[in-house]
């Protein structure tokens, strides 16, 4: 893929960072406002997909992206499972809230282990959506071979 016109590239360069930060905001404030790991992860993935569409990729880049996104996806899943298992081994119950009374309710630092679960889900969803995109995009290299 060669990438798109300079107009698209310039706009993508400007908005890409903002989209990424907005996605992180949605993930981190998931326990306070609408959103959370899934929605925020999808927005973060959109940022990566935008840059790949605008600037284009080569076959080798697609391959490395598919490997790294699958590793990140598994890491996100494992982190989420780890938080649940920590609840089992520390608190005595699967998925129990590890520090329920830490922080002030309504502020960023609150809600115990829920923000950490949101971060894990965010990593997993972002990597999963990116890897779906990469797989769809790399079929054209497979058919060329």
């Amino acid at each position: 893929m060669k990438g798109m016109t300079p107009i698209v590239k310039v706009v993508a360069r400007i908005v890409g960072g903002f989209i990424f930060i907005y996605g992180c905001y949605i993930v981190l404030y998931g326990h306070l406002s609408p959103g959370g790991g899934f929605a925020g992860g999808a927005i973060i993935a959109a940022c990566f997909i935008l840059s790949r569409l605008a600037f284009g990729t080569t076959a080798s880049q697609e391959k490395s992206a598919s490997i790294s996104s699958s590793i990140f996806e598994s890491t996100g899943g494992l982190l989420f499972l780890l938080i649940a298992l920590l609840g089992l081994f520390v608190g005595g119950y699967f998925f129990i809230n590890l520090f329920p009374s830490f922080g002030t309710p309504g502020r960023l630092v609150s809600a115990g282990s829920i923000p950490f679960s949101n971060i894990a889900i965010g990593i997993k969803v972002a990597a999963a959506i990116l890897s779906i995109f990469v797989v769809l995009a790399s079929t054209k290299y497979i058919f060329k071979e």
């Binding site: 590793i71 598994s74 899943g77 494992l78 649940a84 298992l85 699967f94």
Partner: peptide
């Protein structure tokens, strides 16, 4: 008591570990 959790957690953990490990 915790068997029901382990019956979910063990295969789920294995499923997420395999994509990382089998590349090695």
């Amino acid at each position: 008591e915790i068997f029901p959790v382990l019956l979910i957690a063990i295969p789920l953990g294995g499923a997420f570990l395999i994509p990382i490990l089998y590349k090695a």
